[in-house]
Design a binder for these strands. Structure first.
Lengths: 345, 345
DNA sequence: ACGGACATCCAAACCGCTTTGGATTTCGTC
DNA sequence: GACGAAATCCAAAGCGGTTTGGATGTCCGT
């Protein structure tokens, strides 16, 4: 419990060299069992803990993973981002790694990565929210900084490690469900489509429609930040149009809540007059569970994705020669209260 | 742009000692202007950046702030926590500090702090979500680790630095507004009351009632995690009771959305049949703005709180002798669409 | 011409750990 | 009883910076 003993003092107290003490504590074999025990006990007694800066300097590994989050990203991805972080964070601490997060102005993002590399702040990073014209992976390859992508970088799927859910498939299945229920005018409230995940979701939506001989109607497709008012305002506008949709496919629970609000304000009933399927990232503060979940949804835990992403990255770091590994998660399609057969008009 | 020059190489290229180069780059006076310029240019050219581990070891300052977040906390405080983090993060990076976040199992929280202190992982920490029986500050004082509290620790207001909003006053004002509108049966959907902030909010609520001669009705007061279903379920139950409330005072936008949903499901109209006032933490993904905000609310930006908390902490670290400083923020009371006069029955 | 005040710069110690390259002891074997 | 292998342990050299305690040179007043 006493504070601030360093290796030198500890070794003096034991009449041993720093070498031996260090080895004893780090589990190297060239130390007798008896000595190891003595060392461990004294270390415990004196409350010794190695100074992490010194250890990092000596080993050349920073034992930290960086997450660079530009303002703009976290403005829109806010809750999802944290959930991911929480998952990753658990993996890190289980492996003795620190998580360092840099919130930077949008135009300083590249700088942030360069600093992490040149100042040796982290042994690897995670790329969040890849865009269609993604370039961060180029920079990181050039900087020789290991990374894992949360999502996929179009055109770089083979050369990078990533973890992603099957966005296209999930939205295709969701759309099919709505079609099976008899809906033909389906609105898509998507996330920002300069992001890869949103692009894929739209593709799934369109593919499903076309497979049944339907033509996607541009007037029914919206794309924006996934806030609550976004869902409400757009749903409101669409519901009041001449030929309103009977179902909504929504990219986020938060917006879906907005859609539900709009439906209510129009005097309609969700799941009866109008159906909603939303993607559910399984955010802890927005549980959509219970016997019958409020929303019919495609669900994939972003927290789990965080855990796995971290594991992938730590693997890459410990075995630097390994080739890129990726994980493709499938979303579940879960039936809730927000869907029903299309109303016959 | 070339990678990986260290101080030694840089100084050799310049025919200068490491001392001089170090001093030149760190702005010490005992270097001629001309030399300083030469050094700066060469450093730029070779892409020199000091290894942060080495610098930290040499200076004895880790240039990092720690945030320990136990699973339980972030389960419930999720989005609010991130918004705070985002604010703090900006301040940190502006001052050259790193932010390190440890996600730990609940029963390892103390361990996490001890490690931060003994291994010198951070120069200070921020305490999130102080409880009524808070003890973390004791530990940190004992460990001699500077800290700032987000919220207040009952009984330790004088001896600690903290930043908090005026929870009591905010809820008192909100309650008064409802009373002024003629509501007398007001329900309180509060956060977990083992947390200090929730306790204060309840006090504000009760004080306002009692000041008008009303007795708080325990049946109308709930306390839980502030999820959406929590708001919906409790509102539903209360609305269906014999003597239902005509107004709700809610501790979080997320739960308030649930309350609105319940009101809709009961065939009632928010702001007309039933009023809602919620606290609004100004979360970026839940904007409650527009010409007339959806919810009447008490608003206080947690992000701003994060920025300020970080500033307080960095001040404490750079001037270790300074006495505790604190910041008391006032929430705005903002009129939205969710309140109206109590319906005459 | 001399001594002190500045202005510049440097060699070396230090931060606290890991790790290399032995040194010493112990032990089984022939 | 000598010898090589195995088991233990250690002194010292890094890791890449910062900082202390001078050394050297220049300028000025007297």
């Amino acid at each position: 419990m006493s504070k601030g003993v360093n290796l030198k003092e500890l070794s003096q107290r034991l009449n041993l060299s720093q070498t031996t003490v260090s080895r004893a504590l780090n589990g190297y074999p060239e130390v007798s069992a008896e000595t190891r025990k003595r060392v461990a006990e004294m270390a415990e007694k004196l409350g010794y803990a190695p100074n992490s800066q010194a250890r990092r300097l000596a080993t050349g590994r920073s034992m930290a993973i960086g997450h660079v989050i530009p303002r703009s990203i976290h403005e829109m991805m806010n809750p999802i981002f944290l959930e991911f972080i929480a998952g990753a964070g658990e993996t890190y601490s289980r492996h003795g790694y620190d998580m360092i997060i840099s919130v930077v102005e949008d135009d300083h993002e590249e700088d942030a990565y360069r600093q992490i590399a040149s100042r040796k702040k982290a042994d690897g990073v995670i790329i969040h929210g890849p865009a269609n014209d993604e370039r961060r992976h180029k920079l990181l390859q050039e900087l020789n900084l290991p990374f894992v992508v949360h999502g996929r970088i179009p055109g770089a799927e083979e050369e990078t490690s990533w973890i992603d859910m099957n966005n296209r498939r999930a939205f295709e299945r969701a759309t099919n469900l709505l079609l099976d229920l008899g809906h033909t005018r389906i609105a898509l409230l998507n996330g920002l489509e300069h992001m890869d995940f949103a692009r894929r979701r739209r593709r799934g939506f369109e593919d499903a429609l076309q497979a049944r001989g339907l033509t996607p109607d541009a007037a029914l497709m919206r794309s924006s930040d996934m806030t609550e008012p976004y869902g409400c305002d757009n749903a409101m506008e669409l519901l009041k149009s001449d030929d309103p949709p009977t179902a909504f496919l929504v990219s986020s629970m938060i917006s879906a809540i907005g859609v539900a609000r709009a439906i209510g304000q129009c005097g309609l009933k969700t799941g009866k007059d109008v159906s909603i399927i939303t993607h559910d990232d399984a955010l802890s503060f927005l549980p959509n569970s219970g016997e019958v979940p409020i929303f019919t949804c495609t669900r994939s835990s972003v927290r789990y994705a965080g855990e796995k992403a971290a594991e992938l990255l730590l693997d890459m770091i410990t075995i630097p020669t390994s080739s890129p590994k990726s994980l493709h998660l499938d979303a579940e399609l879960i039936l809730g209260q927000s869907t029903g057969p299309a109303p016959s008009r």
